[in-house]
């Protein structure tokens, strides 16, 4: 049994390293299509971390919604806008150095805070959260944000269609 736990531990650390490497690929690669593929890989790695944290339902949601829907949408947008022949276009603006310096300071401060803070750790239970408990909480305690989310989804759907459709208001009322 300890062998299995050690394997899970190293698996999660390996998933973390993989996600960070692919995230660096997302922000540094030149070809935007490769960036989208790296994003898909990073999101799948995140789903693996969710599995390690015993959030099975969320791992499924992550793969379905992010990798299935969002990455597909991004790839569609890249195909519709980018001419992939023009790969030599510079992809970054000239503010890389200030961004790196500022973010290094930000990371240093927050990492020091994270290490110093005494987190109120609880003896978390081994049992994973079942889908039924999530559903009951979603329909019970959190029913108001759930309804708000549904309204936001409808608004975003209609808004995306209205924004992206061809504008032919000149003729045919």
């Amino acid at each position: 049994m300890p062998v299995l736990e050690i394997a899970v531990k190293f698996g999660i650390y390996a998933a973390m390293g993989t996600v960070l490497i692919f995230a660096l690929g997302v922000v540094t690669l030149r070809n935007l299509f490769h960036c989208a593929l790296c994003l898909a890989a990073a999101l799948i790695g995140t789903a693996v971390i969710y599995l390690g944290l015993r959030a099975d339902f969320l791992a499924g949601i992550q793969i379905l919604l992010y990798v299935g829907a969002v990455v597909t949408l991004v790839i569609f947008a890249i195909m519709l806008t980018e001419h992939l022949a023009g790969k030599t276009v510079r992809q970054n603006n000239s503010q890389s150095l200030p961004a790196v310096i500022g973010l290094a300071a930000f990371v240093a401060i927050l990492a020091a805070l994270i290490v110093k803070t005494p987190w109120p750790l609880q003896a978390a239970s081994h049992a994973k959260i079942s889908v039924m408990e999530i559903g009951q909480a979603l329909m019970g305690t959190y029913v108001f944000p759930f309804e708000v989310i549904s309204v936001i989804l409808i608004a975003a759907l209609i808004g995306a269609v209205v924004i992206a459709k061809k504008d032919n208001s000149g003729e045919q009322s």
Binding site: A23, L24, V27, E82, R90, Q91, Q95, V100, F106
Partner: peptide, 14 residues
């Protein structure tokens, strides 16, 4: 890393 990308990228999709 995400904030670095949002600050540095020229492409809106990026």
């Amino acid at each position: 890393i995400g904030i670095y990308g949002a600050l540095v990228r020229r492409n809106i999709i990026g």
